[in-house]
């Protein structure tokens, strides 16, 4: 069973704060673990000793200094310990080639950052609903 945590890798403080506030409006919101860049995210995830204790969802921005969200995604999907952890790419770009590339790297979802708070709240709500509900189901072989 994954912990009730969501990992967010986002370098922009405003965007991160925006997300945190949207998340906090949920009924029983999950805990938000915020990493300011890709390296921090990977280091943070390394501290979880067991797969079972990993955050139940990682949300990665693409454009970050140092390591990009896609590079982090690649590393997560190639590490046996983290490969089953759901990853959503959240970006300001709605270009088809950026979306396609994210899925090529193995993203489980791609969402475009909304500018209106109302829209972000709805989005966060649906993410939370989907991943909480699905994660109640144990994978067949764990």
């Amino acid at each position: 069973m994954y912990t009730n945590q969501i990992l967010l890798a986002e370098d922009d403080t405003t965007d991160a704060e925006f997300f945190r506030r949207a998340l906090s409006r949920l009924d029983s919101p999950p805990e938000l673990v915020w990493c300011k860049n890709g390296v921090e995210a990977l280091e943070g995830l390394a501290t979880y000793s067991e797969t079972a204790s990993l955050p139940r969802l990682a949300i990665l921005d693409i454009k970050m200094p140092g390591m990009s969200g896609l590079e982090v995604l690649e590393k997560l999907k190639s590490d046996a310990r983290t490969k089953d952890m759901p990853v959503i790419i959240m970006s300001s770009s709605d270009e088809p080639q950026d979306i396609a590339r994210a899925y090529d790297y193995g993203a489980n979802g791609y969402l475009v950052k909304p500018s209106r708070f109302q829209d972000l709240r709805e989005l966060v709500g649906s993410i939370n609903y989907f991943w909480i509900k699905t994660n109640r189901l144990r994978p067949a072989s764990s």
Partner: peptide, 13 residues
């Protein structure tokens, strides 16, 4: 768009 989200979104909040 990022700072716009900051302006518009936070005004909404």
């Amino acid at each position: 768009r990022a700072p716009l989200r900051g302006i518009d979104g936070f005004a909404e909040i």
